[in-house]
Every structure is written in structure tokens, then in C-alpha cells.
Design a protein around this nucleic acid. Structure first.
Length: 565
RNA sequence: GCGCUAGUGGCUCAAUGGAUAGAGCAUCAGACUUCGGAUCUGAGGGUUAGAGGUUCGAGUCCUCUCUGGCGUACCA
């Protein structure tokens, strides 16, 4: 349920009665609790438009909306703010609807779009490293979110499986024959060995160069080697996805090489649209006011990643029928996407009203504020990072002991992976963020563990109660009112997160919700003997609904919950 | 050089052009015969890098300055 739009409707109705048309009211959450649940700030801007004093407009609005049954109280404040308190009964009724709904009363889009989410995109020549973390989990979150809200989501893993490096790798693969099986287990090392041979052995280097050409011209032997290599590398990625709990599968892979046949067509179409300029022998697209062009074909006739990206934009429109495309890629490629999106529209590869979004994100830093590296300056393997997270989570919870090994393992995985993901998703994606084990695995503050713990506490209460939860929700105190209104705001939060593609709106919400629940829990005993049945049931309902929202909210982020920590 | 981006308490981060800029960590002070205290309550701590401007109203928009990060044509 979109609670804000319900209130907006009430305000708009009032404005209409005042003779104000073509103005769309937008309320916001009250900035302070003493200002109520929501506030409408539009009276000030309306003042100029219709030539009345803001206070006068505000007081008229207050008078009109006060009569509405969903409003408990409306007040004018300051220069013309309208502060709004919701009726407790309205809140409880809607909470009950939410409780009974199969999907927490989240409004499903009645005009679903087909959204492509392009994320993860590892290079097959190397093992996934920490640099792939953000794209993978932000992208997966957005895909989950869009899906939940009723859109048709097509996940696209645009893996790098084409390029000069592969000649060297498959030549080395062939060289090693049967031994290669073991060496491929450590892809990073395999690359290093191949590179070492390439640098030291001239004959091998020639063969590597020859093999690049051979794969590209469709040589069967080389393609078979290449296939084997890509298959192995991809299965490494799948292990990481599995460990990380993201939903990417083989089905979502559409590799760079899949566009090979389209590349000449792309050049042809660009040419026919007069978008190509030859510069220094290369085919370029110059965007107005941008100094450096996109190069789509090299002097030697070779294509580049920009060509493939354009082919992908074209494919996603023509074959996938997508009208919104989200590219979850490092912020440093901002300029590239700006040009790419412009060119694809100019060329007619995508429709003019297609939403093309570069979901940019910043870099992961270590405690000293430098890009995250190993002690000797190398890249940190993603798989190793996740293993460490699980290990550290185990240490954190071991103190309380009493777990059998299997439970401990499962818990550590849920908590460790959850901590890594939450830490990443809870900061505004566009800024760089400092990676800190201690902070992310803390029970205190805005962490996954704090929220997971609250969830476990609720489950503990529910199981202790041990009976069917039924009866009405009765809002009986200010804290219950705030908790209720916050629960009702779930859908609005998701809508906003969807619109701006901002996962941290969801984490902020969940943290606020959890904090409110903890306060409620302190103030409102549930299972104590002196609590009457109706109150007990109402509070159990609130607790249960809070748990459901937490579980669903975390699920969007790809984070699991457990019943006991 | 040009372009992009950021600068918010000691630290890590929020803030949809709206009221007295909010959280957490850390610090200090409280609350336990615990419905799971791995919790909760409270306090101190800010000229939002600086200077102008737009606006009824600016951390947010515009201009300039300072400082940092990044990108700058045949790699992806």
C-alpha cells in the first residue's frame, strides 16, 4: 500500500475544493516526531502561484483535510507547513490488510516494463576479485526489487570472453594438455603462468598471437580449446555466485562473443546514419561537446568493447524488447556510458523514450582510504574475501557457543555474507566506501547483524508464545503508532528505491524500523503475565508483521534471516 | 591542460529545495530477580572546505576559489 499517495489524494482533493488545479501535491515524512507523521510543504510554493499568503492556504488545507477520516489531526506550523497525524484506526486497519496480504500489500505495477539489469560482468581470463563485488550485489538487489514490484526483469551477465588475452590462455591450455586440469583450478595462477611463458618464450608468443586470429576466424580446434577454458572459468564464477547468494545463473550469461556477428551490422547502421567519422584511420563517433570520441572500429579493422556495447543495446531493444536498461558499472565509466547512450539513441538502436541508466558506484577502500588490496598490493579474490567473512562471523558468534557444527556453519554463512552485502548496500552507492570487518560484523549500529538479531528475537517470542496469532491490531501508544506508520511505509520506500535505483534507501528503512521495534519492545511487554489477551495479540501481530517486513526487505538485498542467533 | 566527481561532529555515514542538519561508532552518565541486556535511555560534540549568487526558504541549485579522487581515442 502506498500510504503517501493516499494522503496526497486527500490533499489534492482539498486543493481542488479550493479551486487550485494542475498542482500535484507531494507530502513527505515529518522531519521531527513532534511534527506528526507526514508534512505537506506546498503552501509556500503555492503562495506565489495563486497570490495568497502561505499561512492562509495552509490553514484552508488544514480545515478541509481535518474532516477526512484518515486524518487524526492537522496543524499549521511555521511559515506554512501542514503537519499531519494519521488516525490510529486507519493505521491499524491497513496494518491488518498488510498482515493478511500474501505480499505485504505491495502494489504491483499495472504497467510492467521489461527491465534489463546488466551486472557483474566478470572477465573470463581472471578470477573474480573484490572489484566485482559491488556490481554483483547492487545489480542483484535492483533485479530483485524490480521483480518484486511487478516488472519483467532480464538479468544480463555481459561476461568478457573475447579479446587478445585468450590466445595466450588457450595456447597455454593446449601446451599443458592433461596437466592443465589441475592448474585451471587456480585461474589467477594459470594466467600468471601463461603470461610468464608468453614473455619468455618467443615461439609460444607467436603461437598465442596466431591463436587469437584463429579463434576469431572460427578455427574449430581453437574454438574447442576456448570453449573449454570459458566453461571452466564460468564455473568458478558460479561458485562465487552460489556462495554470495546472488541469483545469476548460466541462463543470464550473454557473453561479449555473442555479439560477434552483429558487429559489422552495427558499423553499417552507424555509417548509414552518418554517425561515423574517420579519424587517424579509426572509425569514430564524436558526441557534441565531448573531446574524445568513441572508437567503434580500429585502424586494423578490429572491433572494440564500445562496438559490443552498442550491439548489446541494440539487441536488448530489438530482441529483448526492453524499455529500461540499468548498467551497474563502476562510476569511472561515466563518460563511456554518456556517449554510449547518446550514440545508441542517435543510431536508433534503442527507442527514444527508453530509459538508459548508468547505475554508477564508487570504489571500495581499505581502512586507510586506499583502494582495497592484499598486503603485497595484489587484488583480493572475491572468493577469499567471502571465506574470510564466514570465518570472522563464526568467531563473532562462537562466544555464545552451544551450536552444533552444522548450525554454526550455516549461521556463519548467513551472518558473514549478510554483513558484507549489507555494509556495501547501506552506503549511497555513488560514494566510495571504507571496508571494515569490525564495523560490518558488529551487533550495534546500522548492520545486517543488528537487524538479523531483531528478527531472531521476534521469532523467539513467537515460538515461545506457541499458538496461532489472531485478533485485532490496536494502536495504543505513541511508539505503536510510529511503528505502525513505519510498517505502512514499506511500499513507499521500495517505490523510491526503485525510482532512483538506490538500495541504501531500503537499508535505512530497515534500520529505522528495527530501531523502532526495539523501542516498542522495551516499552510494550508482550508475553508478560499481566498483559491482557487482546493487547498481547495486538503486540504479537505488530511483532510478527515487523519480522515479515524485515525478512522481505533483507530478501531484496539477498540477505537471509535465521530464527536463532 | 580539459572533463567528471567528492569535501557534513574525533571516526564511519544519512538527509525528497523546507522548520532547531540526523544516525551509528568512540567518549561520559544511567536502566537488569532479561517476554533473548549481543538490548534500551540520556549527555556532550557542527560556521555542512571557503566566498559570492538564485529562492519566501540552500548541506542540496548556479558561479568562482581551495583540497582530494578518478578519467582523458584505437585495452575492457
Amino acid at each position: 500500500m502506498k500510504i503517501k499517495s493516499q494522503i496526497n489524494t486527500v490533499i489534492n482533493q482539498a486543493l481542488l475544493e479550493m479551486g487550485i488545479v494542475d498542482y500535484d501535491a507531494v507530502i513527505s515524512e515529518a522531519t521531527r516526531i513532534e511534527f506528526g507523521d507526514f508534512q505537506f510543504n506546498g503552501a509556500m510554493s503555492l503562495a506565489k502561484k495563486i497570490g495568497k499568503k502561505p499561512q492562509e492556504i495552509a490553514s484552508q488545507i488544514v480545515e478541509l483535510i481535518s474532516q477526512n477520516s484518515i486524518i487524526a489531526k492537522a496543524q499549521i506550523a511555521g511559515p506554512g507547513f501542514v503537519n499531519i497525524w494519521l488516525n490510529d484506526e486507519f493505521v491499524s486497519n491497513n496494518l491488518e490488510i498488510m498482515t493478511k496480504s500474501i505480499n505485504l500489500d505491495i502494489a504491483i505495477s499495472c504497467t510492467p516494463q521489461t527491465i534489463v539489469v546488466d551486472y557483474s560482468g566478470p572477465n573470463m581470463a581472471k578470477e573474480m576479485h573484490v572489484g566485482h563485488l559491488r556490481s554483483t550485489i547492487i545489480g542483484d538487489t535492483l533485479a530483485n526489487l524490480f521483480e518484486l514490484m511487478g516488472d519483467i526483469v532480464i538479468r544480463q551477465n555481459h561476461i568478457g570472453d573475447w579479446g587478445t588475452g585468450f590466445g595466450m590462455l588457450i595456447a597455454y591450455l593446449e601446451d599443458k594438455g592433461d596437466e592443465s586440469h589441475d592448474e585451471l583450478k587456480d585461474l589467477e595462477n594459470f594466467y600468471k603462468l601463461a603470461k610468464a611463458k608468453f614473455d619468455s618464450d618467443a615461439l609460444f608468443a607467436d603461437k598465442a598471437r596466431e591463436y587469437v586470429v584463429k579463434i576469431q576466424s572460427g578455427d574449430e580446434h581453437c574454438l574447442a580449446l576456448w570453449d573449454k577454458f570459458i566453461g571452466t572459468s564460468l564455473s568458478h564464477c558460479e561458485e562465487v555466485y552460489e556462495k554470495l547468494g546472488v541469483k545469476l545463473t548460466k541462463e543470464d550469461v550473454r557473453a561479449e562473443s555473442a555479439y560477434n556477428d552483429d558487429l559489422p551490422v552495427v558499423i553499417e547502421e552507424l555509417t548509414s546514419k552518418n554517425l561515423i567519422t574517420i579519424s587517424d584511420g579509426a572509425k569514430c563517433i564524436f558526441m557534441p561537446d565531448v573531446e574524445t570520441p568513441i572508437i567503434v572500429q580500429k585502424r586494423d579493422g578490429g572491433y572494440l568493447y564500445a562496438t559490443t556495447d552498442l550491439a548489446a543495446l541494440r539487441y536488448r531493444t530489438k530482441s529483448l524488447d526492453s524499455t529500461r536498461m540499468c548498467y551497474v558499472v563502476d562510476a569511472r565509466q561515466g563518460e563511456h556510458f554518456k556517449q554510449m547512450f547518446w550514440a545508441s539513441k542517435e543510431a536508433g538502436f534503442v527507442q527514444s523514450d527508453t530509459k538508459l541508466e548508468h547505475i554508477a558506484f564508487g570504489t571500495m577502500m581499505d581502512a586507510s582510504g586506499k583502494p582495497f588490496k592484499t598486503r603485497d598490493g595484489g587484488t583480493v579474490k572475491l572468493s577469499a574475501l567471502l571465506d574470510e567473512a564466514i570465518e570472522r562471523a563464526k568467531e563473532t558468534i562462537k562466544a555464545k557457543d552451544g551450536y552444533d557444527p552444522a548450525t554454526l556453519e550455516h549461521l556463519a554463512r548467513v551472518i558473514g555474507i549478510g554483513a558484507v552485502k549489507y555494509a556495501d548496500l547501506s552506503v549511497s552507492r555513488e560514494s566510495n566506501y571504507i571496508f571494515s570487518w569490525d564495523k560490518m560484523l558488529s551487533f550495534d549500529g546500522n548492520t545486517a547483524l543488528y537487524i538479523q538479531y531483531a528478527y531472531a528475537r521476534i521469532q523467539s517470542i513467537i515460538s515461545r508464545f506457541g499458538d496461532e496469532i489472531s485478533g485485532d491490531i490496536i494502536i495504543a501508544s505513541p511508539i505503536e503508532h510510529r511503528l505502525g506508520v513505519t510498517l505502512l511505509g514499506f511500499d513507499d520506500t521500495l517505490t523510491r528505491a526503485n525510482l532512483d535505483a538506490m538500495p541504501h534507501y531500503i537499508t535505512s528503512y530497515l534500520y529505522d524500523l528495527t530501531t523502532l521495534f526495539m523501542q516498542f519492545y522495551e516499552l510494550s511487554p508482550i508475553l508478560k503475565d499481566d498483559v491482557d489477551v487482546a493487547t498481547k495479540m495486538s503486540r504479537l501481530q505488530l511483532a510478527n508483521l515487523t519480522a515479515k517486513v524485515i525478512k522481505q526487505g533483507l530478501a531484496i538485498l539477498g540477505i537471509e534471516v535465521v530464527n536463532k542467533i
